[in-house]
C-alpha cells in the first residue's frame, strides 16, 4: 500500500511538470482564425418581423478554442456604448461588458453565441456601429481581438433570415421550389415590381430609389418582409 501511494505521488509530480504547457488559445469567426490583437469588421445585419416589432441583429459566428481541455474566461467589452450579449457556457448575459467562463474541450470550438440586437418599429431607423474588445484567458495565456460591427461598411442591406428571399449587392435574390410571384411595394403600398420566378435567381433593384420596400413572395410558400435600399 505504501509503495502504491509513493508511485501515485511520483506520477502526479510528473503530470504536474507536463501540465506546465501553456494552452494554445484561438479566436475564430466562422472557420477563419482571428489573429491575436487584430481588428476585424462584420457588416451583416439581419431582421426578423416579430409582428409589429422588428428585431435587427448583428451576430457574427464567434468561437474560442484551445489545444487542450481547459477553463476559459471570455470578456466582451463594448467600447461604443451599446449593450451586447453573449451566451457561452450555458447562461446568457447582456450589458456593455459581458464575462463568461466556460470549459473548452481540446481542439473543439466553443461557440460564444454573441450578438447585438435591437427592437425597432421602423426598419429605416439608423443602425449604430458597434465596437467590442474581446479577451480570452486560460491560465497564463491571453488572446485578444477587436470586432467592429457596422452595416454601413458594406453594400449589403438588410437581409432576411429566411433563405427563400434575400437582398444583397446584386438585388433581390430568390430560391423557390415551384413557380411563384415576387412583388415589391413601396412603403405607401404602390407596387413597383412584380415578376414570375422559379428556382434560383436575382431580380435587379438598381433602379429603386432609396427607402423601405415590402416584398411579397406568393406561391407554394408565402413569404413577406421588408428591405431597406440605401
Amino acid at each position: 500500500m505504501r509503495m502504491k501511494k509513493l508511485y501515485s505521488l511520483m506520477a502526479m509530480a510528473v503530470l504536474t511538470v507536463m501540465g506546465s504547457h501553456a494552452a494554445d488559445l484561438k479566436f475564430w469567426i466562422g472557420d477563419t482564425e482571428i489573429e491575436n490583437g487584430k481588428t476585424i469588421t462584420y457588416s451583416t445585419l439581419t431582421s426578423d418581423d416579430l409582428g409589429g416589432l422588428y428585431e435587427i441583429k448583428m451576430a457574427p459566428e464567434l468561437f474560442v478554442s484551445s489545444d487542450e481541455a481547459t477553463s476559459v474566461t471570455i470578456i466582451a467589452a463594448c467600447t461604443s456604448g451599446q449593450d451586447i450579449q453573449m451566451c457561452a457556457g450555458g447562461q446568457c448575459s447582456s450589458g456593455k461588458t459581458v464575462t463568461k467562463t466556460a470549459s473548452v474541450n481540446a481542439n473543439e470550438k466553443l461557440p460564444l453565441i454573441f450578438d447585438w440586437i435591437d427592437y425597432v418599429e421602423d426598419l429605416s431607423a439608423p443602425v449604430p456601429a458597434v465596437t467590442t474588445n474581446f479577451t480570452a484567458t486560460a491560465g497564463s495565456v491571453t488572446r485578444k481581438f477587436t470586432l467592429v460591427m457596422d452595416p454601413a461598411a458594406s453594400s449589403l442591406k438588410l437581409v432576411e433570415t429566411t433563405n427563400t428571399v434575400t437582398y444583397g449587392r446584386e438585388g433581390l435574390s430568390f430560391d423557390v421550389a415551384s413557380p411563384s410571384t415576387l412583388s415589391l411595394y413601396s412603403i405607401t403600398g404602390t407596387q413597383v415590381l412584380s415578376q414570375r420566378v422559379d428556382g434560383q435567381g436575382t431580380v435587379n433593384t438598381h433602379s429603386l430609389r432609396p427607402g423601405v420596400y415590402i416584398y411579397a413572395l406568393r406561391g407554394a410558400r408565402n413569404v413577406t418582409g421588408k428591405i431597406l435600399v440605401k
Partner: peptide, 11 residues
C-alpha cells in the same frame, strides 16, 4: 507521461 499513466493505472 507514459510512465506516469502506467503508474497511475497500477496504483
Amino acid at each position: 507521461g507514459l510512465c506516469a499513466i502506467l503508474t497511475l493505472a497500477t496504483s
